[in-house]
Amino acid sequence: MLDGPVTFRPLTRADLPLLGRWLEEPLVARWWAHETSPEALEADFGPVVDGTDPAEVLLALTGGRPFGLVQRYRIADFPEYVEELEPVVAVPPGALSIDYLIGEPDVRGGGAGAAMLAAFVADSWPRYPEAGSVLVPVAAGNVASWRALERAGFVRVAEGPLTPDNPVDPPDHVLYLLHRPPGR
């Protein structure tokens, strides 16, 4: 359950042990399949902390307590990803994408994911004035994830094969889109 509004702060190196614990949570590990050694966490998240990677990684907090992680990036900053997406869906110019997880099991359920996503997208519009939309691919089997997107206002726009985050999954993905609201 959420203990107040969702806020965000940038990931720091001091947060890497917490992130490692979250990535080992069975529900998170199922979909993220990420190495959790200190070296792997540094290799994958150190460049973001240093500002040398074009993605942003932020912790989601409620009541001052970190409970989740959200990564935000311009899809165009990763040309190989654009190439992979284009056969499945037209990538809108300037589109952002996000990856996310809720690491604290006691916060899952009750709409926490949808609240985190809605707050994060609202935070994204003023930070990325050129972005007219957010496009999010999700493994088709991750029903909780795509339902959270739907509750946050995203609309399914495509289905198709993409490289899965977890190699045990089939390539089946669903893609969700949210356009910038007028006046935002």
Rank of each mutant, 00 (worst) to 15 (best):
V134L: 12
V143K: 06
A33D: 09
G111V: 03
T163S: 14
P126T: 05
A158Q: 11
V6Y: 04
W125N: 12
S145I: 07
G46W: 14
Y176P: 06
V49Q: 05
P38W: 11
Y128D: 08
L23S: 01
L16S: 02
G111L: 03
P47I: 13
R13N: 04
A112Q: 01
A140I: 07
E104V: 09
A115I: 03
G183Y: 10
V134Q: 10
D99H: 11
A55P: 03
D99N: 14
E84N: 08
V28R: 06
Y81I: 13
V157Q: 12
L175K: 12
G183E: 10
E56C: 09
G103Y: 02
G64H: 08
D169L: 13
V157P: 12
Y81W: 15
P5N: 03
V89N: 08
F67C: 03
N166Q: 09
G20V: 03
W125M: 11
P171S: 14
V70I: 15
P54Y: 08
F154N: 10
P5T: 08
A119V: 05
V48P: 00
W125R: 10
V174A: 15
P93L: 12
A90C: 09
L19Q: 00
Q71L: 13
W31E: 06
Y81G: 05
E24C: 03
P10I: 01
W146R: 05
F154S: 09
G111Y: 03
A40N: 12
I102N: 00
F120A: 14
G132N: 10
P171E: 11
A131G: 07
R108D: 00
V82S: 10
A158T: 11
Y176G: 12
A122Y: 03
G111E: 01
A131K: 11
R147N: 08
P171D: 15
P38T: 10
G46T: 10
L101W: 02
F45G: 00
S133M: 09
A114V: 03
V174K: 15
Y81N: 08
Y176D: 06
A115W: 02
L149H: 04
L177Y: 13
L149W: 04
P137V: 13
A144P: 08
V82D: 07
R30V: 01
L101F: 01
D44T: 14
A76I: 06
V48H: 04
G51M: 05
D50R: 14
R151V: 00
R13A: 09
D123G: 13
A148L: 02
R9N: 01
